[in-house]
């Protein structure tokens, strides 16, 4: 009881390769803010309909991203000289707006807005066939890591961390691309998304080449429960159905391969 938690031997001793899965049947669906929600009704409504239909057969938790208002917040905040932690705290409002919008649309199918203080009730919500809608951005707020750029822990990272902590079945990021494309600087051949790729490989790409947050890839390298992240196109809702059925669609990112 008096042991130092910083001690390396204690760190080693507490390694528990098999953690208990708290919500093993749940699928976490993160709907991109900039990639899907900001596109408006043509992008959102078909996806909502699909999620509503699939939720009768699969346990689904929907998480929403921030999008353009989040970026605008960062732009203004940075111009004002606010620290990263303040940006993270203020940006949450954009995410909450998106969560509310998505919840309203999912309401006829059982969509309910669940705040982080109610996570312990998730089993009840899922058992009652509701579709919990959460904010994907992790609540690091003023405690976000310092950086010269925008907050490191964005909605991709938050989605994976929650899927990891609760030992969920899948973490699916819904964007507006068919999957992950390898950066191709030379060849003129038409690009196709890859079926599978490792976080390790993607970490060697530049920020511009990454379709997901760098920090999410870092978390994936350390994940014990949720070792795959699916990237699919929300403009093609049938991709979501395929992933939930366990079929190939989009790209699967794994830690090391």
């Amino acid at each position: 009881m008096k042991e130092s938690l910083v001690s390396k031997t204690v760190q080693q001793k507490t390694h528990q390769p098999r953690e208990r899965r708290i919500l093993p049947d749940a699928n976490l669906l993160k709907i991109g803010g900039g990639s899907v929600i900001d596109r408006g009704k043509n992008a959102i409504l078909p996806l909502i309909k699909t999620i509503g239909r699939l939720a009768t057969r699969h346990r689904i938790i929907v998480a929403t991203g921030g999008g353009i208002r989040e970026r605008h917040t960062y732009a203004v905040g940075m111009d004002l000289g606010l620290p990263t932690g303040a940006l993270a705290a203020i940006a949450e409002a954009a995410h909450e707006q998106n969560a509310l919008l998505i919840q309203c649309l999912l309401a006829p199918y059982g969509g309910i807005r669940v705040t982080k203080d109610e996570f312990e009730k998730l089993p009840f919500f899922l058992a009652s066939k509701a579709i919990p809608v959460i904010v994907a951005m992790p609540p690091y707020h003023y405690w976000e890591y310092p950086s010269q750029k925008e907050p490191l822990h964005g909605s991709d990272t938050g989605a994976l961390t929650i899927a990891e902590t609760f030992g969920m079945k899948r973490c699916i990021l819904i964007k507006d691309i068919d999957g992950v494309y390898r950066p191709d600087h030379v060849s003129g051949a038409p690009q196709k998304p890859v079926k599978k790729i490792t976080a390790k490989e993607m970490l060697s790409w530049s920020d511009d080449e990454l379709p997901v947050e760098r920090q999410m890839l870092q978390v994936l390298l350390k994940a014990r429960n949720c070792k795959k992240v699916y990237i699919i196109n929300g403009l093609k809702p049938q991709m979501l159905e395929r992933v939930l059925q366990g079929k190939n669609a989009g790209t699967v990112i794994t830690a090391h391969g």
Partner: peptide, 9 residues
């Protein structure tokens, strides 16, 4: 810090 469930592994 308020990370709680969002603590990185």
């Amino acid at each position: 810090p308020p990370y709680e469930y969002w603590e990185e592994p």
